[in-house]
């Protein structure tokens, strides 16, 4: 099954055995650090691409994980107080960089918009449970829309690395807003762009494409983010064909590390509705347990 995304960080964060603590060096597995802004540039009319230089741990972030960014105060006079969760767009352990894609929509992102090369940005992460790729899968299907396109982008490289073929169905209002198209294409994925302006992004058309992929034996698992409607289509197909799937979910957060219970969502688990924290039980969840 596709969902080893439960609570495995708990094990890695096991407390030290009694008596060991006196001299055993204690090491944090999550840190906040002042990263160095490399670039912060417009990618299109809506999205901006932020690349920062960071520590080793942060640069080892996995697809589907996220960071909590302490946004600078924008010149509008707004005072963003809480950190902002931002899903990983790219990570390079060799150059020790992480990248984010964001749309300026509120006080926090207006603050991020002010960052210039050479500025410092307080980032905390990587956080949460990311996507899990089962090496037995020969072909996966990625379905994303809106901000979900950024969240899914790092899967392209990760799948390529383990020799899993990818078909990416990328959805946006207009073709120029399809942000991760090149990333997927660059890593050898087949990209199917669907847009509102071309009237190709409706759930019925996406379902038709997915059914064809399943029929062709090119869908061993679903990966999705950014659209409840498209998630429901995949849930239905996953159920019908007995396929696994993973979904990255969003929620307003405060702490980002499981303390405050602000980011809970309902999930259906074994017929019961349960509350889970998106920040630490997710943000990637079993597709079949997610509720819109």
């Amino acid at each position: 099954m596709s969902t080893q995304v439960g609570r495995n960080h708990k094990e890695t964060a096991a407390p030290p055995a009694k008596g060991d603590h006196a001299h055993a060096p204690w090491k944090a597995s999550v840190v906040a650090e002042l990263a160095l802004v490399i670039t912060n540039e417009a990618m299109n009319d809506e999205y901006r691409h932020l690349v920062v230089s960071c520590g080793e741990e942060a640069a080892r972030a996995k697809p589907g994980q996220f960071f909590q960014l302490l946004c600078p105060h924008p010149p509008t006079g707004e005072q963003p107080f809480l950190r902002r969760p931002m899903s990983l767009y790219g990570a390079d352990p060799e150059t020790r960089q992480v990248a984010f894609l964001y749309k300026v929509t509120g006080a926090g992102t207006r603050g991020l918009d002010t960052l210039k090369s050479g500025d410092r940005l307080d980032i905390m992460g990587p956080l949460g449970q990311g996507f899990v790729l089962d090496p037995r899968w020969r072909h996966i299907v990625v379905v994303g829309r809106g901000a979900g396109l950024a969240t899914l982008a790092p899967l392209a490289q990760a799948a390529h690395r383990v020799g899993t073929a990818v078909t990416a169905i990328l959805s946006a209002r207009r073709p120029e807003l399809l942000v991760s198209q090149e990333t997927f294409a660059h890593h050898g994925a087949e990209v199917i762009a669907v847009t509102d302006s071309q009237a190709s992004s409706g759930p019925a058309n996406v379902e038709r494409i997915l059914r064809q992929l399943i029929a062709d034996g090119r869908c061993d698992a679903f990966f999705t983010c950014g659209s409840s409607r498209l998630m429901r289509v995949q849930q239905r197909l996953a159920h019908e064909f007995g396929l696994p799937g993973q979904v990255a979910m969003e929620q307003q957060m405060a702490c980002g590390i499981g303390l405050c219970h602000c980011c809970v969502r309902d999930f259906r688990v074994d017929g019961e509705i349960v509350n889970r924290r998106v920040c630490c039980d997710g943000p990637v969840f079993n597709l079949m347990e997610a509720l819109p």
Binding site: H9, S29, V31, G258, L259
Partner: peptide, 10 residues
């Protein structure tokens, strides 16, 4: 209310 075992990571 601002603390849980998860903070042991930090």
């Amino acid at each position: 209310g601002t603390f849980a075992e998860d903070l042991a990571q930090v």
